[in-house]
Design a protein around this nucleic acid. Structure first.
Lengths: 188, 188
DNA sequence: ACCTGCATGTAATTAGTTACATGATTTT
DNA sequence: AAAATCATGTAACTAATTACATGCAGGT
């Protein structure tokens, strides 16, 4: 699952420019995987070189021209093939989870701030997903709902788990101690 | 959250060799992030170079010697500092989720096999976590339970969500169509 | 005989981020 | 006046994977 596959996934749902692909990955599908432009644009060029996508320049008023990419039959075949062949991997790369796991070594006010930060981000993501499903311009309503339903479902259960975790950590018998000057004893 | 931070996290809980760190990350903390030896050993060397860890060679009978790493005060301080300073990022890099999102383009028997594969992996991981919490040799019981409780909690809710998703996809009104020879129409 | 587990490491390659470069338009 | 949005791209760098190299012990 590299950037090229991620691009093909988005293009499978509908045509999009590099900027738009990144927006989808950063907003509607945040919590999945973000990509940087430095990786995205070369990846799109490679997709065109390999005949997996085509592009056309679309002029706009006010804003700059954009290169709109469309997946080809070969691209779609390869996307489906790769997806089917790939092992069902599942990894959560989360700094936040690590912050929760090691909550006892963080300053309590910092921990609370981090929790708030992440919960706010979850709220924003969920709002974006609702927006995404609501409007209907380029992507098919069915596809959108499928993607959004899954994402919001997974996120909601995550939110619930994390809220419970937070409640547990905030309870008096689990008072986190302040960040120490010396090392923390954990080899008990 | 790079490999060095991941190593410090494991070493914060207790001393371990490179091989053991990888084992923890691949088994007890599977679904978090796996690391390859090609990245792990150079990372450990760098930690020692930077004074964030020390190592000692431990001879064993039957099996080869091992280099056991221990976190230093400076290492612990930096681990806590980095963890505290870092934004509360949260990303799920999951081929499996993508396979579910695009379930309709996969052959139904392949989809079922992928689901089984992942559910089996979840079961194995949960069993490993129970084992991990049960025995008590090197890592502190408290830390283990904290880590394991969180992981299994998050995974269990995930499992539940995924089981529901699977049940929904298996119901007759959602029969997935076979992998097509031509492109799939999604631009409805 | 062959595979798996234990154990550490290097070399070649691929993948990805960060920072830079450009420039118009709209919002604060 | 400053910042954000739209829009594409390159160059330098960092980080990571994959494949290789070595070797012994125990199980099938």
């Amino acid at each position: 699952m590299n950037i090229k596959h991620l691009c093909l996934a988005v293009l499978h749902v509908g045509d999009a420019s590099g900027y738009e692909i990144r927006k989808v990955l950063a907003e509607e599908l945040a919590n999945f995987q973000e990509v940087s432009f430095g990786a995205l644009y070369p990846a799109l060029r490679k997709l065109v070189d390999e005949g997996l996508a085509t592009n056309r320049t679309v002029a706009q008023s006010g804003v700059p021209d954009k290169k709109v990419y469309a997946i080809t039959d070969a691209g779609r075949a390869q996307f489906i093939d790769t997806l089917s062949e790939a092992p069902a991997n599942h990894q959560i790369r989360s700094t936040f989870l690590m912050q929760l796991v090691f909550a006892d070594v963080l300053a309590p006010e910092r921990l609370r701030a981090l929790m708030q930060e992440r919960l706010d981000a979850f709220e924003r993501d969920l709002a974006k997903i609702d927006e995404f499903v609501d409007c209907s311009d380029q992507f098919s309503r069915e596809s959108r709902e499928r993607v959004a339903r899954f994402c919001s479902g997974a996120l909601r259960t995550h939110c619930a788990t994390l809220r419970d975790e937070i409640a547990r950590l905030d309870s008096p018998e689990n008072t986190p101690h302040n960040r120490p000057d010396g090392p923390v004893s954990c080899a008990g």
